[in-house]
Amino acid sequence: MSFEPKILGIACNWCTYTGADLAGTTRLQYPQNLRVVRVMCSSRINPSFIFKAFQLGADGVLVGGCHPGDCHYNTGNLYARRRLAVTKKILEFSGMEPGRFRVEWISASEGNKFAEVVREFTEEIRNLGPQTKFKIS
């Protein structure tokens, strides 16, 4: 059987989740490998969520937030940007492939971009193969 990646998507309620909604209502096709979790803001994301997701067998993690400056709470994604940058560096230095974690800014009107990003990311993870490093067997 061919490898179907499991991807965790963490989407901010105000932009990316609404963008995903728009992608759905405009009937855009994108892979079903993404499981979306909705959070109120990208700065709600505890870095441990990401480590935990990898441990529980996610092959990739995609975080979506508002464009910097567009945050519903004014400054949330500016904090998140710094924090997630550090998360990325830590994953990289621990030996995880850097491509498995990605942060994208997708606004509520960018249904197209959402579908495009998910398509691209799924393809990238498919090429990387199953994630075995962090996974607890």
């Binding site: 910097p68 500016l78 710094r82 924090r83 550090v86 990325k88």
Partner: peptide, 15 residues
């Protein structure tokens, strides 16, 4: 401390 602070002009390149 760096992580409880931000600058609007932080670059997206850090991600």
């Amino acid at each position: 401390p760096a992580l409880i602070n931000f600058r609007v002009e932080d670059s997206d390149k850090i991600l």
